[in-house]
Amino acid sequence: MNPEPLRATKSAHRSRGDALLKSAVAAAAAGIVILLFFLGVELVYNSRLSLVTYGFGFLVGTTWDPVHEVFGALPFIFGTVLTSALALLIGLPVSLGVAIFLSERAKERRLIGPALGSLVELLAAVPSVIYGLWGLFFLAPAMKNYVEGPLHAYLGFLPIFGTTPIGTDVLTAGVILAIMIIPTVSAVSRDILNAVPNSQREAMYSLGATDWEVTRKAVLPYARSGIFGATILGLGRAVGETMAVTMVIGNAPTISASLFSEGYTLTALIVNQFNETTSPLYASAMVEIGLVLFGLALAINLFARTLIWRMTRASRYRV
């Protein structure tokens, strides 16, 4: 028996180590929250001049005239919303197909599944500016000659195909955005589909359903809110995407029904004019453009995260 005395000094030293580690890493975690908060505050503070001058009119004004200091952001909001909507329209079906392939089909073909998954993920690794360069020199001419030309020739009576195709336009921006959001949307959707309990599939198979029926009637309905979340996440990506869009959209602040006309987005406006401001009001209006983008991105991300978080958390308890 050796009742070794329990040394208080040493134990105090140890719990100090624990407390020190905890407060250091908690400070880092708190830093992330403070960062985002501070980001919002800085944007509001530095756009105060524009906020006070234009009020709500900033969001609905259609004229952007720095020379006469008339600042209306609607053309840019329109461009951002339109290109993002196009991106979803084109990108979502493709992403869903990829997700279904990777989670429901590729399991049997073990080799091709992971390889294809990696390829699609590599799309996300390509920098935005390279999409822009490629979009400007290859995609835009190809769109003009092989897609927009024929559409205009045969369906030109429709307002959306009504103007002469130029290549660097809203539709091309939508297509490049679609390519860029496919990796995000398909990867998140694949995870969501993987989280669908197998009992759901087996129940449908036991009723004599085919693979496709199981996917359509059991898996997709079960996963729909999560897939919706993945879609919204893709929307967030599209709204915030900057370089590629700036390089292919033409940068003209117009609101047109035609997809073949040049457009402008919030992000492209920041790229082109943020460093060119000539007066405090102009500078303030540019920060407010950033604030609008911040608000849009924040709302979209909060919404998407909540949806995905709910879905994956629920499945964690069920599995």
Binding site: P3, R7, A8, K10, S15
Partner: peptide, 19 residues
């Protein structure tokens, strides 16, 4: 442990785990 409560406030669990 040897007559002393290991859950006593003055005791550091780290010491207990070494013994």
């Amino acid at each position: 442990l040897d007559g002393k409560d290991i859950y006593d406030k003055s005791v550091d669990p780290v010491d207990i785990r070494r013994r």
